[in-house]
Every structure is written in structure tokens, then in C-alpha cells.
Design a binder for these strands. Sequence first.
DNA 1: GAGCACTGC
Length: 699
Amino acid sequence: MADTHKNTEKTHHLGLHKKAKYFEAKDTSSYRIRNQSIAEQRRSLPITSVEKRIVEEIKNNKILIIVGETGSGKTTRFCHNGKVIGITQPRRVAAVTVAKRVSEECSTQLGQKVGYSIRFDDKTSKSTRIKYMTDGLLLREALLDPFLSRYSIIIVDEAHERTVHTDVLLGLLKRVQKSRSTGGHFMNDEIQFKTSQCQKSHGGLNLPPLKLVIMSASLNAGVFSEYFDGAKAVHIQGRQHPVDILYTFQPEPDYLDAAMITIFQVHLDEEPGDILVFLTGQEEIESVERLVKERVCQLAEDKQKVLIVPMYSSLPSEQQMAAFKKAPPGFRKIILATNIAETSVTISGIKYVIDPGLVKARSYNHLTGMESLITVPVSKAQAIQRSGRAGREVPGMCFRLYPENEFSKLADSTVPEIKRCNLSNVVLQLKALGIDDIIGFDFMEKPSRMSILKSLEQLLLLGALTDEYKLSDPIGKQMSQLPLDPIYSKALILAGEFKCLEEMLIIVAMLSVESIFFFPREKLEEARAARKNFSSVDGDHITLVNVFRSSLEFLDKLKLTINNEKSISKNLLKWCKENFINNRSLRHARDVHSQIQGHVQQMGLSITSCGLDMLQFRRCLTAAFFLNAALKRTDGSYRAISGGQTVQIHPSSVLFHTKPECIIFNELVKTNHNYIRNLTRIDPLWLPELAPQYYATQN
DNA sequence: GAGCACTGC
């Protein structure tokens, strides 16, 4: 009863507080003004004539910064001296879709003149001259070809996103460009040696200069220009429709409530058009979905035509597709989305954006090695990106659920990822590229000295570096070749010695993907029962091995009776559903598994199994993950040995109820508590025995 | 008793 009353009161409240009261309409919003002023200040050109100009600019400049929504592909219609133009993207899906579009525009078959290359999927050939790829992949290529000799031009798209890969790539490209114009003197001896061999095979030709184009949607081109020694920046006006930005008069104490009110205000008062609401996570989306559904029922019948669609990454792909479907005639679609709708997916039909201005972001404490997910205010750039989602097809509106003076207090842009993550992988790759002075490396934005030192220390403990902090041979070299977290690469090398490489390959594949199990709220008991079939008393690692092997057995049996690819994957999907396993994650794990298997075979490691001797496997896990050990306290919590933090077993672990005395774990994440995930029980005496370099001096 | 978003020859 009380609930109903509350609800009607709120609905009423909506009626009273019309737009003009609740929101301050900023028709001459800072957003539009800013767009305008760029157009005035810089020589902005309509998109059709821009192409010619850019080709001209690339001819005349070694480096060019292009700012604005360019419509990727416009700049890539030419190439020279039989070399390749490489275009990098932060995301796989972007690399694929842009490549497809450009190859269609050129009327060529994908994979011929225009192709793409991403992990697990290479659509290029000898005749490919325009190659789209992920930036991470180009970094990997640089390990084999340090001068990127195949490329004449490299275009880095979406540079404003400042992912770790983009930042490292920019540093590398700056260096490669300098060395290609000075004949390679810039690189150290080892790389010069590699290059001279490489050049011999190219008939001793000197490499032509490398041209760079940096594309950024950010309004702040200055940082890129400055980094590339005052490189020329060209501004291009976007093809966005105007978006009216509306702010609240007062700060909203409860942003979910404010979001609810706004959803209904738009639905009842504004003309047709879909609504996109930015929320922070799955839980929040589920609860808002329930609340909206409840309140819709209380509306007049002709106002009940709404379609509510949740959208977040861990949603099974069939359900994600629902967000892309058009709403039935007369219906309004309301999409409740995480950050995924900010850049990763584009949903058509959106006219209204509701933005509480918050995001759940990963932060990393390099002192404790602890990652945490915290809800923080978005940056100005993020808020602008979000509001832009309303103006892709028609003029739109964006409701920011905070006052305008709060907007001005937001940070201009999000802190680049390289300043808030574990750098072990970055450091290892730079070392493998022959860059020994990591602290002196010309990063666009330098990570803290502390976090670099911490990574060097970790790599030293893993044996990837010598006492002089040089890449060790063979361990460090092998580790750098594997596309894995360094600690997983080390685990594979160790597993070769422990004769359980087969099992460890499965583990690193399963740990490298998103969550394998899922526990839907409404079928929790069923899901738990399903997992019991795979559970091991030893912990999550062996449980994951059991899942992987069971799925392969099932797949093999299927292949004996059916030879229709489609029907096989349909059956596998059914098997996954029955077992509450995420089909996408499992497929991804199979891909990682076969890729890494190829790598370790090439390295000459022999893939042997420990059979039923799980003791041996657990000892190997201990030798590999000794840095992540924890001891039980009397109260049932745990103490992480290396960092000293108090931690708890994550409820998703098979050891949640068992609580063994001593465990090793793979992940330490702070959400509501300090949770450790993916555990195996071990004997504490194994630690000084198997990791004396770390535990011999400790107690 | 619980899961922001990306990504890797």
C-alpha cells in the first residue's frame, strides 16, 4: 500500500514539475557554443571537400592531427610505393565494420585491397594495401618488425580514448618515425641488428619515412600537437545534429529517482523518439528496469506503449541484440545501458539521453596491487560523448541530472588508462622492443615512477628480468611473446617443468576471459546445482579445467554424429544454457587456448598432462601464483601475504563455504569488500619450498 | 553472499 502511494505521488510530482521547473534549458548550451567556436576559429571545411585537403596535408606533413568526427575511411583512399596504410582502432568491432564499409565503398572484396586483422581473425592478403587493425595488434607486430617496415602511413583513430595500447603505440610510433628518418640510429644495437637483417631481405633498401596521422574526436588537440613537436592540427566539423543540454536547478540527492522522474517526464511530454539512460552497472539497470515496469502499469493505457531494454556487456548476445531492434509502431524504446553505449555500440533512433553523470571506473593502487571498481563522476569529454548520442540522426535533447555549475567542475577528460593500471605488461613489451630505460621513455603522459618501479620489481620476481633489469633469456623473451598477462605466461613456462602444461593452458585460457559461469537471480539454485557437476574440492582452477574438458568432450561427441557446423554450435549453446555457462566466454576461451597452444608449441615446450595427479598441478599453481597467497584468520577472513590486506573469498568461488587454511588466488578486487577470486587450496609449506626467492626471507 | 568498459601476430 505504502509503495503504491509513494509511486502515485511521484507520478504526480512529475506532472507538477514540468521541464521548465525541473530542468534549466540551455538552448545556447556550452556544447553548441563550443562546436560553433571551433568552426569559427579554425578553418573548418564541409566533409566532402575535406578529403582532398587531408591528402594534401599528409603529403606535406610528417605528422598530422585530425580533430573531429571525421567519418573514418575518408582519409584512406590512397596509398603509395606498394606499402601498406595501417589504421588502428581501440576496438575489434570498429576495425571490422570500418574495413567492411571501406571495401564496399571501393567496390573490392574484403580481404583484397582493403582488409582487417584482429586477434583470432585475419582478413588480409598479399594485395591488401589498406589494413584496419586493433592498436594492440600493431603493438604485437612491432615485436617482430620493430621499424614497422611494411607501413608507409599509420593512422591512429580514436586517439582521444587514450587506452593503454594507444598510448604505448603513440610513444613507439614517435620513436619509429624518428629512426626511419635518421636511418635507424635512434634504436639501440640489438634492434639495429634485427633491422639490418630485415633490410637485407628487402634487398637492402632504406625504409621510406613513416607518416603518421592521429585522429581524435576530442576538442583538445593541443596535447597531441604538443607531444608530436608542434604537429599541424586540422579541425573538421562533425556531422552531428544539435543537442539541447538541460541541467537540473538543484543537485539531485537520489540520481536513480531523478532518472525515473526524467524518463517519465520525457515519455509523457516529449515527442516520439527513443530514450537512452546511462546507469553504472547491471544491478542498477535491473532495479530501474523493475521500477519503470511497475510505474508504466499505472499510466493510462495509451501511454503504456514502452519497450524497456537493458544493455550491458555481460548480457548474452541474443539479449543484447534486443537493444538494436526497432520498437513496434507507436512504442517508445527506453534503453538502460552502462558505458557500453557510450562508445562501443551505437543504437539508432535515440533522441533523448538521460545522464546522471556517473560511471563505474577501474582504479588501481600500485602500492597494494589492488584493483577496485568505484563510482565516480564522468569527465566533461565523457558527458559530451554521452549527449552526442542523442544527435546522431535528428536534433536531440540531453538531460544532465546535475546543475550546470557541477559540469564546469568536472575534469576535462578521463585520466588516461596508463596512469591507473598495472604496467607489468607494458614494461615487458617495451623491454622486448629493446627499450631499456622505461622511466626515461617518452610517454605521452608518464605513469608514476612508483608504478613503473613496482612493475619492474614484479617482473624481476617472475624471472622475466635479470638483476640488471634487462630482459632475461629465455624466460623473459618467451614471456614477452605470449599475448597474456605476464604472470600467466610465467605459469605456462613453469607448467612445462611441472609436466602439467596441458592443464595450465586450459587455466590461462579460462582466466583470460570474462566470467564463465552465470548466476541469474531467479534461477540461483538451479545454477548452483549445475556447477556442482564440475566442482572440485581443490578450488576454482580445477573446476575450470573440468568445465573446459567437459565442453570439449561434448563437442567431440557432437562432431561424431553431426557434421553440420550450425547445428553443432546450436547444440553447444543448449549445453551451455543447461549448465549455466556463458557460451560467449567459453568460445573465447577456446580461441585463446588454441592461439596460446600454437605459441607454446613453437617455443618447443612439450604439452604434457599430469593426469590425475592434481597435487602436482596445485604445486605448479603455487609456484606460479606465489605472489597471490592468503592465510585464514581466526574470524574466517584472510590475510593476503604480500600486501597484508584483509580479504574475503568471493561468493562465486567453490571454496566460499570450505574456507581452507591457505590459498592462492588470481584476482583481488575491491567492490563492497576486498574480494579474492579464482582460488585453489594449497599447503602453506609449499610457499617457501616453491618460491624461495620470495618466502625464504619472510615468515 | 555478488559481476564498469575495452583489448592482445
